[in-house]
Amino acid sequence: MSKIEKILKDHHYKRSRIIQILQHVQAEYKYLPKDILESVSQKLKMPLSTIYSIATFYAAFSLTPRGKHLCTVCMGTACHVRGAPDVLARIEEKLGVETGGTTDDKQFTLETVNCLGACALAPIVVIDGTYHGQTTVNKVGGLLDKYHEKKGT
């Protein structure tokens, strides 16, 4: 059984569970590949335009391939006043990509988020689900290197 068949079967081929299905697809492929969405559309008998509508509505879904590590910088009010724009600029410089982009070696994808609700830790950088609070411009380099090292080992 193909990966997509299994995901759809887990959700009993229910159209109402399209968001969970897309989350699963994204967990499996790191993004939502077009051919996979086309086969989801065919198998659920659901218009591709509706799936595309959902996929573009939620910021959590990505239609372009993402890097191995997802780096999210919080740009909420608290993070903003405590220097998030500088942190973001430093990360952009370090990775050589703009917000929303993926590095050429497909290691990092850089994104921003409007508030994570953990303002006490501002400014926050989340890498692969791990929260790094009270980040500073100086700390960023070491932080990213840690993930680069992981790749080496």
């Binding site: 077009k34 969405l37 659901m46 218009p47 591709l48 335009s49 509706t50 799936i51 595309y52 509508s53 573009t56 509505f57 939620y58 910021a59």
Partner: peptide, 19 residues
Amino acid sequence: AGTLDFHHRGPETMVGTAY
């Protein structure tokens, strides 16, 4: 037919086909 739907969100919302 399901050719059209809204896509994107907020100020970028627009009507269109998939992709």
